[in-house]
Computed example of a mutant assay.
Amino acid sequence: MSSPERKPIRKAVFPVAGLGTRFLPATKAIPKELLPVVDRPLIQYAIDEAREAGIEQMIFVTGRGKTALVENFDIAYELEETMRERGKDMSALDCTRFTPGDLITVRQQVPMGLGHAIWCARAVIGDEPFAILLPDELMWGKPNCMKQMVDAYNEVGGNLISVLEVPHEEVYKYGVITPGAENGALTEVKGLVEKPAVEDAPSNKIVSGRYILQPEVMRTLENQEKGAGGEIQLTDAMAKMIGSQPFHAVTFDGARYDCGSKLGFVEATLALALERDDLGKDVRAIAQKLLAE
């Protein structure tokens, strides 16, 4: 098995072209990724995660109607000037600032699947390994998920995916790995299966929305082969790389909130609010009052 040169992870791709139909009518005019979890847009949690992992350049794969998503990270001159004149604390905006050139957008004109969205960023990725963060998956931990993965990458190189263990009866809803040798949080990946029947699942370790991939995956994706649902699947492209390059899973030590669903979004908001020093006590009292009623 060949081992590619271990270049640092400098770039991250964020697939944000989806329509967010499960959150209508809230997402009719506002991108789903800008819906707030407590007081930060969902996309901000993924950006903060990438930054903590040392990633420098963020690449948004957008679609129609996502202008506001990009503008969220621009300078709001009127807002900032008004706040400045009124002596308001502007530190809340610090996380929305980028060094010029460190936020890049590319367009996915047609919704042809996650693999196609990643392929749309090929010119920006070039010949470098890169991270992928799916903002719908809010991964919460210290250190965060991508930092745990970059640390693992610095040890073993190659390709990595984040995984979580779920009850075996739930594996049919997810991508599942065929595990090999295990070493702490690291598991060798022997294969990938998308939404297997419970009785056929090779493990209970599910793929959970974070990836570090070598640029060769773009060569596989450029064949535009369609998989499940008639879409170009990232899972299929990754599966073809297993055996030719090192491939590991990192079991994430933290919590995952599926903010692609309404229930997961509510759960994330409640869980993160309860952790806040400025909100936790009051939110807990409110929850207890509502439950008592």
Rank of each mutant, 00 (worst) to 15 (best):
V110K: 14
V70I: 12
T82N: 10
L213H: 00
A76D: 15
T99Q: 06
G227H: 05
L24G: 01
Y45D: 15
N144E: 03
V156L: 09
F130Y: 13
V110L: 11
L160N: 15
V150P: 11
A121F: 09
A228P: 08
L274C: 10
Y77F: 11
L291Q: 09
M218I: 15
L133G: 05
I9D: 11
D151R: 09
I242A: 03
Q109Y: 03
V70N: 06
M218T: 13
V61M: 00
I212R: 09
F265D: 06
K66E: 02
V171G: 05
S91Y: 01
E165T: 07
I177Q: 06
L270Y: 04
R219Q: 14
R122V: 14
R6M: 14
T220D: 07
A197T: 03
G243E: 09
V106L: 06
G227D: 10
Y172T: 10
E137P: 00
I206K: 13
T99L: 03
F23T: 06
T96R: 13
V156Y: 03
A201G: 11
A268Q: 09
I132T: 07
L290N: 03
R51W: 02
Q109C: 03
G54Y: 05
G209V: 01
G264N: 07
S203R: 10
S261K: 10
Q233H: 01
T21G: 01
P8Y: 04
L290P: 01
P4G: 09
D200L: 09
V266W: 02
L42T: 12
G191N: 12
V150W: 07
P100G: 03
E182S: 14
D282L: 04
E275L: 08
A152W: 06
D39W: 01
M1N: 05
G87M: 06
I132A: 03
K11N: 14
L134T: 10
A287M: 01
V198F: 00
E33G: 00
E170P: 01
E85Q: 09
G18V: 04
V217H: 08
N223K: 14
M146N: 06
P167M: 00
S162G: 15
V176Q: 07
C120R: 15
R284G: 02
